[in-house]
């Protein structure tokens, strides 16, 4: 029997790659807009996980320099804190993008009564909406 072991960092890298591939697949091929948005969230989280993984150290310690620590021992054993700090910002950015996308999806659902991308973003718009070609500024300022 073959014993198969894989260390935590490698596993995390594989997971992030899987996240990105699954996310790309969902964002490209799925029709439902909410599923598309979930796929996009997957891509973002895959990239974030990748960056977090960079700072990982097998058996490392929290990168806080406490009094009494040996500087060289600390340098050799602590995790790399920069990626963790960066990812925090990028998660916030991802969340706000997601929020805006979901908000637009809500508005479009009210307009078309459908969540299918083929209907709301494609060329196959329902005839009722297509016939009422609205010129700019005539829609009123309800969206303001």
């Amino acid at each position: 029997m073959i014993e198969f072991t894989i260390d935590t960092q490698l596993a995390a890298l594989f997971t992030s790659a899987a996240f990105i591939v699954i996310g790309l697949f969902a964002a490209i091929f799925l029709d439902n807009i909410i599923k598309k948005i979930i796929g996009i969230a997957f891509i973002e989280e895959g990239a974030n996980l990748f960056i977090v993984t960079l700072g990982y150290k097998q058996g490392g310690i929290v990168p806080i320099f406490l009094p009494g620590m040996n500087a060289e021992w600390f340098a050799a054993n602590s995790a790399y804190p920069l990626p963790h700090a960066l990812v925090l910002t990028s998660i916030v950015i991802g969340a706000s993008t997601l929020a805006v996308m979901l908000a637009i999806a809500m508005v479009l659902y009210r307009k078309y009564g459908s969540l299918s991308t083929a209907v709301i973003l494609g060329d196959k718009k329902p005839d009722i909406i297509k016939s009422g070609v609205i010129d700019s500024n005539e829609k009123g300022d309800k969206n303001e």
Partner: peptide
């Protein structure tokens, strides 16, 4: 408030969500 502005914005965000994370 122009015609189809929400659709275009959503398209831009979807396209951007492929470009940005990469």
């Amino acid at each position: 408030n122009t015609e189809d502005n929400y659709e275009t914005a959503l398209k831009y965000l979807i396209v951007g969500s492929i470009g940005g994370p990469l």
